[in-house]
């Protein structure tokens, strides 16, 4: 009796947790003014995995990423059609506030961009504070946890009051990751998070991505094929042909996409012939 009930609860939890962080893209197109940047992309992002978006420059990787948390519309004149489902809820549905979407889907940018007027601590606490968390103890705990998750705690624990911009580039990027994690997102989007960093800092960010997929769904844009092969579980290859806006050419397990691509164009790209 007892046992059955416990089992049932555990399985419901499991079921919920399995669904948390699922992102389904359905027929997504995106424009900048009249310029189409993305054409009818559909893909299912698996929860708790790292999905890499690859493709030549200008094929719409960043655009696709920014459509997932409605950052695309921040650009003046940018529009979207299609659906992005976050656990069955369309983030573009009427009545959905982009603010609540972005709380669930965090983002890390190519250039580290800590808030220039805030200390390290305040940067990490920014999202929580501005959402109304005032309790000092709660904040302290969250800040430490996020900094630990971002593998930055040991380096900054003695200088939390220093400005965030005083850190090195790699540290700043991990600070931005901590800042995004502190608000407990389900999905973490990263747009070439290591391209502005040196090889050592890049290696740390890559380790971090692998760590993070235990708790989060990670989608990462990268130019670096080896990086995609090293860190990701799934890979999506986009291509923009004759200026028609980027389209999804191939999507599958990373090993399959790199080793036995189904599409000619994917093969050309991953072998460096494009």
């Amino acid at each position: 009796m007892q046992m059955t009930r416990d089992l049932r609860i555990v399985s419901v939890q499991e079921w919920r947790e399995a669904a948390e962080g699922t992102v389904s893209v359905r027929g997504l197109s995106a424009w900048y003014g009249r310029h189409r940047a993305l054409t009818d992309v559909s893909l299912e992002v698996r929860p708790r995995s790292v999905t890499a978006l690859i493709g030549p420059s200008g094929c719409g990787k960043s655009t696709l990423l920014r459509c997932l948390n409605r950052m695309h519309e921040v650009v003046l004149g940018a529009t979207v059609s299609g659906q992005v489902l976050l656990e069955d809820e369309d983030v573009y549905g009427s009545g959905v506030d982009p603010v609540s979407v972005r709380r669930r889907v965090g983002m890390v940018f190519q250039q580290p961009n800590p808030f220039p007027t805030m200390s390290i601590y305040d940067n990490v606490a920014a999202g929580l504070r501005l959402a109304g968390t005032r309790n000092r103890g709660v904040l302290d705990g969250k800040v430490e946890q996020a900094l630990r998750q971002a593998a930055l705690w040991d380096e900054v624990k003695d200088k939390l009051r220093k400005p965030g911009t005083a850190l090195s580039g790699g540290q700043q990027q991990r600070l931005c990751i901590a800042r995004a994690l502190a608000v407990d997102p389900e999905v973490l989007l990263m747009d070439e998070p290591a391209s502005a960093l040196d090889p050592v800092a890049t290696a740390r960010i890559e380790e971090l991505m692998v760590e993070l997929k235990r708790d989060y769904t990670v989608v990462v844009v990268t130019h670096n094929m080896q990086q995609a092969a090293r860190v990701s579980d799934y890979t999506a290859f986009l291509l923009s042909e004759d200026g028609g806006g980027g389209a999804l050419v191939e999507y599958g397990e990373t090993r399959q996409v790199f080793e036995e691509p189904r599409d000619e164009r994917t093969r050309d790209y991953v072998t460096g012939r494009l």
């Binding site: 948390n69 950052m71 921040v74 603010v99 940018f109 007027t117």
Partner: peptide
């Protein structure tokens, strides 16, 4: 104020008015 600062605030899930008053304005101080 670099647009990256504003975007970072929006991506954290701050509504635009909070991002403007709490992040953009202090940077433009």
């Amino acid at each position: 104020v670099p647009s990256s600062v504003r975007e970072a605030a929006l991506a954290l899930g701050l509504p635009e008015w909070r991002a403007t008053l709490r992040v953009v304005l202090p940077t433009a101080r």
